[in-house]
């Protein structure tokens, strides 16, 4: 089956800085793929490149169609099938527009005549009172605004929805409203979703597959349960060990604590995680290969395509296949 979204060798450069390095992933039709990583890991830049907001090299395919070229008509048409919901609904909705105008902006040219009815339908779809059409975004709560943004994205009848930290600026009690809504939309409309979040617990709840990013590249990807249970990359394990959980008291333990607090990735050849790696050369001098060889090239042979010299190698069956089903 053709993936809903297929990204290969995606690279984004800003001047001398490479924000995203050769990222590849497939988003299976009807599934949700999570992108996780710390700030600066390139996950949001990847999302922006996919929807055409950041210049990139590499290929992005939406279903059967190529969406890589920045200007061609076909690529633009293909990109319209990918819509994005931003982190901060306060700035993603024009303060001068009414809710109705915001949503209507997403409607394709052909549906303008029936605008009023479509807007009402969309608002109902995202569980908002259609009576809100005349309100301005400033009058709504954060959760309501985020739902307006989702309705605007849905108005364009997307096949893929890119959700970039959509709950990061919401309060806990309201976050659940948006998460539940996205899950319902996915089930009802068969949407495929690229779900970007720094919160692994949210990613686990929302996603079928997950790709972990570090310093601009995907260091591990696979089915979400598989990754959580058998993480190959030490960075993934460090992330998992840092998820705060009610009543667990794990954060103060020593499990998978990183070797240093260095904020920038390691320079030069070798693995760029090595300075912080809890099991790398910083703690285990025997692992000299990490300082000399880039673990990237061997990744396809390893489980979860892990970018780590010491990850298990793949044996026979494709570890990625059919691993991430919604329980």
């Amino acid at each position: 089956m053709t993936p809903a979204l297929s990204v290969s060798d995606l690279t984004v450069r800003y001047g001398s800085v490479t924000a995203v390095r050769s990222v590849s992933f497939d988003l299976r039709a009807g599934s949700v793929l999570g992108l996780v990583g710390e700030s600066g890991s390139g996950k949001s830049t990847t999302a922006r490149a996919v929807v055409g907001l950041a210049p990139f090299t590499g290929t992005v395919r939406v279903g059967e169609r190529d969406a890589s070229s920045p200007r061609s008509r076909d690529a633009r048409e293909a990109r319209r099938r990918v819509q994005m919901v931003f982190q901060d609904s306060r700035s993603s909705l024009d303060p001068r527009f009414t809710v109705g105008q915001c949503v209507a902006e997403g409607l394709p040219a052909g549906e303008r005549r029936d605008q009023g009815r479509r807007v009402r339908e969309l608002l109902e779809l995202v569980s908002l009172d259609p009576a809100l059409v005349r309100n301005r975004p400033g009058q709504l709560s954060g959760g309501q605004r985020q739902r307006v943004a989702i309705a605007r994205a849905l108005a364009a009848r997307p096949e893929v929805l890119v959700a970039d930290e959509v709950t990061a600026s919401l309060d806990v009690s309201v976050q659940a409203v948006v998460l539940n809504l996205l899950r319902r939309l996915r089930a009802e409309l068969g949407l495929s979703m690229l779900f970007i979040s720094h919160n692994l617990a949210v990613v686990r709840y929302m996603c079928d597959d997950v790709a972990v990013m570090f310093n601009g590249r995907v260091v591990e990807q696979g089915g979400v349960d598989d990754i959580l249970a058998r993480a190959q990359h030490p960075y993934t394990r460090a992330l998992l060990a840092a998820v705060p959980e009610v009543g667990q008291r794990r954060l103060l333990s020593d499990a998978a604590i990183e070797a240093s607090t260095a904020a920038s990735p390691a320079p030069g050849p070798g693995c760029d995680y090595r300075l912080r790696c809890p099991v790398g050369p910083a703690v285990d001098p025997g692992r000299a290969i990490c300082t000399t060889d880039d673990p990237g090239p061997g990744a396809p042979e390893r489980v979860h395509a892990a970018v780590c010299h010491f990850a298990s190698t793949r044996q026979g069956t494709d570890a990625l296949a059919g691993s991430g089903e919604l329980r």
């Binding site: 309201v174 617990a201 709840y205």
Partner: peptide, 24 residues
């Protein structure tokens, strides 16, 4: 109770929607 339940944790039941609370 809501604060404890509304945010998914690593053991959240994915077959059910999260308990939630709209409004301000």
């Amino acid at each position: 109770g809501l604060l404890l339940a509304a945010s998914p944790d690593m053991a959240a039941d994915r077959s059910r929607p999260l308990p939630m609370l709209d409004g301000r």
